[in-house]
Every structure is written in structure tokens, then in C-alpha cells.
Write a protein that binds this DNA or RNA. Structure first.
Lengths: 194, 194
DNA sequence: GTAACTTTGGAACGATAATTCCAATTATAC
DNA sequence: GTATAATTGGAATTATCGTTCCAAAGTTAC
């Protein structure tokens, strides 16, 4: 009877995520990954196939973690406006508590590899579309109930919000200052007010 | 009497810029640079020192080009609001006319190298501060003349605008669609309206 | 204690990397 | 035509790269 794998794959992915996020895909060597994960190269190749396979798995896992973390927070309120604000608060908090200010792996990977890696480009596009769709749903409902301003169409507002989040992910690496990011967000979210 | 260098350094930097921007710093080999620039590796090393020196020079030249291009357009109007809109229009146009959708070299370099390259991180920070300062100056003057809304402080609005531009540089790589980017921008700039 | 499997700690392999070196060619000034 | 310098087209050097291989060690089930 074959023995189960001993190491925690999710834990390995988290470690890989961290080093890929700091140094970039091309800037990270297999030696770096061996050191960061604590596995031997044979185990890495056996489990993930190759460097690129590990990278894509780590990136998918990163996005799943982000989504799960936000979903946990979102369950706490029915207000669409508050849900939107919760997402922005989560992003800001993620930025300022990130001591090594390595930023968002999806954004970083997308900027580094968008041109040369179709799979990464597709994941980034899908992530954007999913999040815009979520914002769209909330804004549409919020506009229907009167909670959110109807000054602009829901789709435009949704895309604008996502655009703002992408901005935070970039400017937050230059200057991960809580008050600054909060003010930027306050101004952006004022567009939802009646 | 020493002979002058024969090749056009600015032209070489432009070619280097393009390949670095598509493949990233670490994803670009010296062979790639030889092919892209048309120079031999001896000429590259003699002129730029090393790969990293060429990269920093290309990045600086890229930012100078962006600044020059915008300055040319800005001279055409005295209206602060129009100046701001001109910058956004320039960014959108830059994004949609970029056939290879390689994006902004400063953003790409910053996302790839911010953690490992202090010089790149510093250049990105300086670029952000300079542009925020420029927006701040215009917004402050515009608020004084009544052209721009005083609902939010000038500094906050300036940072919010820069944040939006960073967002465009990321989302514009996923989806370089003119109408979408214009709508996002229209909503963002509505914050300046009375 | 044994069988079966996972994992290790490298070494080996083939390739690519950045940088230096060098003889030859080309270009320019006089 | 000559002197001087720039540039070329690689080769050489040294190192690192991603991936495969392998004997040995460790772990688990029976």
C-alpha cells in the first residue's frame, strides 16, 4: 500500500509563493525554491512537474487564499456598499501588514510575464473579470435599493473600483502608508454615495 | 583625435527598452539585447558597463520620453482640469496603440524588481512623487480658481489620480479597450467636477 | 523484521547565463 | 595613405540554470 505524501502541499505552495513574489518568476532559481520550501528538488519535480508548474500552482493557490480571506469577511454584512468597502479595507490591510512589501502575486506575475506567458495572462484576466463581475452585481443591487448612487452605470463603476484596487497594489508597494491608502480609497468610494 | 561613437545611443536605449519591457529584466538575455539593439556585446559593455547599467539607463530614458511627450501636449492648454485630462488621455492612447501590450516599463520594472533592486524601487517612488506633486499643484490652483471641486483636499485627489493611472497601466494590459478605459477615467475625473 | 514507498542530498547532464577577451574589420581625421 | 579609434563577431571563461538521475536514508504498514 503506497504511503501518503508526508509534506503539506499547501504549506509548500505558500513558501514558494513568497519567494516567487519577492524575486519574480525568472529571478527565482530552483535552489531558491529548495531553500524556501525545505523540499529536495526530486520532491518538487515529482509533485509539481517543473518550475513553471509549481509557479502556476502557487499563483492559483495565492488567488484562492485571497478569495477565501475576503469571503470570510464579506459574510458579516448584507450591505453592498459595506461589502465593497470591506474589500478595499482588506486590500489596504494586506498591503500595510506585508513587512517585505512584496505586493500582490497576481499583479506582479502579470506585469512580469503577461507578454510571454499566456497562462499567467489568462489567470490575471479571469481574476479581473471575476472581481469586476462581483462588484457589478453588488453595485447593481445597491443602485436598485437606493444604497448606491445611480450617477454612473454599474459596469463603469465596477471597472473603476477594480482599477483603483490595481492602483493600490502598485502604489502600495512604493508607499505602504495606511493613512494615505485610506484617503485614496475614501475618495474613490465617494463615487458610490448619493 | 578620438573618433565619435557611431551609433545613436537613444535609439539603442529605445530598442533595449522594448525587449526589457516585453520579457522583464531577468527574462531578457544579453543575446536578446544584442539582437534587439544590433550592437555587438563588446559595444554594449563598453557603452553601458553591464546589463544592469543598460537596464537602468533604458528605464530612465523611458521615463524621460514619457515626461517629454506629456509636456508637449500640456503646453496646449492653461486649464488645470484639461491638463489632468490630457495626461489621462495620453495614458489611454499609449495603452491602446501599444500593439504588443507590453505596458509601462516603470510599472513593470517596479513590480518585478522592487524587492531586490533598490535603484529601481527608488526610481519608481520618485516618479510617483513627482507626478503626484504635479497633480497637487494643478489641483490646488484649480481649486483656488473654482475650476476644480474643493470637496476633497488637493493632496488626496492628487494621490487618487495617480493611483488611477497605475490602475490603468495594469488593467490596460489585461484589456486595452479604448471605451472601457475612457469610461473608467471619466468616472475618476468626475471627482474634480463642482 | 521486512516490504514498499517517500524523500533526501546531492551529482550529472546539457544548456544558458553574464562578462571578458581578442584578432580582424571598418570608419574617421589628418 | 596612415594613424587612431570604434566596432564587430564571435570564442573563451566562469558560473548558474532547469531537469534528470541515483544510491542511501527514512518512514509507514503489516
Amino acid at each position: 500500500m503506497p504511503k501518503a505524501k508526508k509534506f503539506d502541499e499547501l504549506e509548500v505552495l505558500k513558501k514558494a509563493e513568497e519567494v516567487f513574489n519577492k524575486k519574480g518568476y525568472n529571478g527565482t532559481s530552483m535552489d531558491d525554491l529548495v531553500q524556501a520550501t525545505g523540499l529536495s528538488r526530486s520532491s518538487i519535480y515529482d509533485t509539481f512537474g517543473d518550475k513553471h508548474g509549481l509557479f502556476l500552482k502557487a499563483l492559483g493557490n495565492y488567488q484562492d487564499s485571497q478569495n477565501s480571506a475576503m469571503e470570510g469577511l464579506l459574510a458579516k454584512t448584507d450591505s453592498y456598499k459595506k461589502k465593497i468597502r470591506t474589500i478595499f479595507d482588506y486590500m489596504i490591510n494586506d498591503i500595510v501588514t506585508d513587512k517585505s512589501r512584496k505586493g500582490c502575486m497576481m499583479v506582479n506575475a502579470n506585469m512580469e510575464l503577461n507578454y510571454v506567458d499566456k497562462e499567467v495572462a489568462q489567470m490575471a484576466l479571469t481574476t479581473m473579470e471575476n472581481m469586476e463581475q462581483q462588484f457589478y452585481t453588488w453595485i447593481k443591487e445597491g443602485q436598485a435599493t437606493g444604497e448606491i448612487s445611480k450617477k454612473f452605470p454599474a459596469k463603469g463603476l465596477a471597472r473603476n473600483l477594480y482599477n483603483n484596487i490595481m492602483g493600490l497594489r502598485v502604489t502600495g508597494r512604493n508607499r505602504p502608508d495606511y493613512d494615505t491608502l485610506r484617503e485614496i480609497t475614501k475618495i474613490s468610494l465617494s463615487l458610490l454615495d448619493q
